[in-house]
Amino acid sequence: MRFIPISAASAVVALLAFASGLTGSHSAVAASAENGKTAYVKFGCWQCHDFNGQGASTSDGLVIARTALPLDAFKSFVRTTNGPMPPYRAPVLGDGELDDIYAYLQSLPQPKPAGDIPLLNAARSQ
C-alpha cells in the first residue's frame, strides 16, 4: 500500500530538458525517475504534495506532477523558498537527488480530462 506507481519505470527527462535548453548546471543525464521516486519519499515531498504530486490544498501543497517549471527554476525554488514550503538546502538534499525528483515528477502520467471521469461529472455545478 505504500508503493507509488509511476507511468514509466524510469524517465531520463533531463535529456529532453537539455534539448530544449532548460538544463541546469548539474549533469542531468543520469537523472532517474525511479531514484527520484525514492528520494521524493525519503525527503518528505509527499507530505504536502501527496505521493503522486497531485498537491493538497490544505497543506499549501501545489500540484507538482509534471511541473511546468524548468529544472533550474525548480531547483532554485526548492533551495530558497521562504513561502509556505520550507527550503531544502544542499546539506540535506543533494543536487543529484533533486534532479532525480524532478525526473520523477516529469514521469508522472498526464491526468485525464475531468470531463472524461464519470464520477467527477456528478460534482456540483452552478
Binding site: 501527496d50 505521493f51 504530486g53 497531485q54 506532477a65 491526468p111 480530462p113 471521469i117 464520477l119 460534482a123
Partner: peptide, 27 residues
C-alpha cells in the same frame, strides 16, 4: 469550478487512493 474538477483528476487512479477519488466514490 472547472479548475477544481481538473485538480481532482490528478492521480485519479493512484494507490494509495487519492482523497478526491475517495470523496467522489462516496458521493
Amino acid at each position: 469550478l472547472e479548475a477544481t474538477k481538473q485538480a481532482a483528476a490528478v492521480a485519479w487512479d493512484a494507490t494509495p487512493i487519492s482523497t478526491a477519488r475517495l470523496v467522489m466514490e462516496l458521493y
